[in-house]
Computed example of a mutant assay.
Amino acid sequence: MSNSHLHQGVEVPAWISVIGGSVSGLVSRFVIAPADTVKIRQQLNGNQDKYRGVSRTIRTILHNEGIRAFWKGNLPAEIMYLLYGATQFATYSSLNNMLTQTEQTLNIKVPSSVHALALGSLSGSVSIAISYPFDVLRTRLAANETRQFRSFVKETSEMYYKDGVRSFFRGIQLSITSVAISMGLSFGSYSYFRDLTANTPFESTSGLLAGILSKTLVYPLDLVRRRKHMTYRGSFAHAILQIIAKEGVRGAYHGLTPALIKSAPTTAISFWCYEWTVDWLLSAQDRFN
């Protein structure tokens, strides 16, 4: 099997994990920003005709707001992805060492995919808690349907003035649940698919398959999370029942297509960038030692 720096028991220095995660987050965010904007518009306005279907949503945004609109909210999103990627992979790497040592001490045989699933859930939860305010800001800025870009600073000030610090953490409980499940599935399935396709031409598709699987299974949670960033209050059950009552069962999956277009490549790019950056940094470290 080809080497993976996320594999069970592999040790990566903390500073290298932080840099690798930061590069992973920044690159993947910039590439998928347009698909993310389309997804958010459909999640928030999926019952409007102008946002039905990916192609119609793209045409609506282009016609009304111009091509730059696909990068609305990109500043807080880049900050969020940088913090998220750095925290996620650094936490994963640290916990990987700790959990592996515990398994060896207790003489417990844990499948690598189950090991990765547990670590992915934990590292995802820590990462979303740290980066969450920027996720809320990204959603609100991307929801703006005018040609004028809203100011990052002005939006932050208005949110704080209107509802205080809690406005930056609205829906965080649901987000932690959603991300814990999603990241657990992403890391677990990535490990499983890499083991399954090791040393074959299909090994490079592991991240893509992991992204499709994890996003499809947790999508309704993600949709409600976005709605709660804007107007929705109450529990997940109450919110999802409201959506179904107004928009039907399909309402819980508004924006799934652009979400998959975004999520599958994002997961693939994220894992690939991390693995490549860590490889490069470890090689550079060896050359200078």
Rank of each mutant, 00 (worst) to 15 (best):
V179Y: 10
I244Y: 06
L75M: 09
R166L: 13
Y219G: 06
I58W: 07
S127P: 00
L281R: 14
L119P: 04
I181F: 15
F30V: 09
A268K: 06
Y192P: 05
L213P: 00
T102N: 13
A284D: 00
P220D: 12
P76N: 06
G9E: 09
Y160C: 06
V54Q: 01
E103R: 05
D49Y: 03
K50T: 10
R250Y: 06
A198C: 15
P34A: 02
Y274M: 01
G21K: 05
D49G: 09
V165K: 12
D286F: 10
G20D: 12
L117K: 13
V10L: 07
L221G: 14
L83I: 14
T197C: 12
L117G: 14
Q48F: 01
R250N: 11
K246V: 07
G248S: 12
S235R: 07
P111F: 12
A35Q: 13
D195V: 02
T177L: 15
G255W: 04
A245W: 04
T102P: 04
V126R: 05
Q148L: 10
M183I: 04
E145H: 07
E103I: 03
D195M: 09
G207I: 11
P34N: 03
D279P: 00
V278K: 08
T60H: 03
P220R: 12
R194S: 15
A237P: 03
T257V: 14
L208K: 03
S283M: 12
Y161Q: 15
V153T: 14
G25T: 09
F187Q: 12
N289S: 15
L223N: 09
V27T: 11
A259L: 05
S157K: 15
L44W: 10
G9Q: 10
P265A: 08
S204Q: 09
N64C: 05
A180G: 15
V114H: 04
E203R: 09
L221N: 01
T277I: 06
I128C: 02
A284L: 10
V54L: 13
E103F: 08
Q285E: 15
E155N: 01
R147E: 10
A284H: 02
N96R: 13
A259D: 07
I261F: 05
A210V: 02
T102K: 14
F271E: 00
Q104N: 15
T87E: 01
L75D: 01
L141D: 00
L82G: 11
A143C: 05
Q88Y: 04
K50D: 11
P133C: 02
D195P: 02
F149I: 05
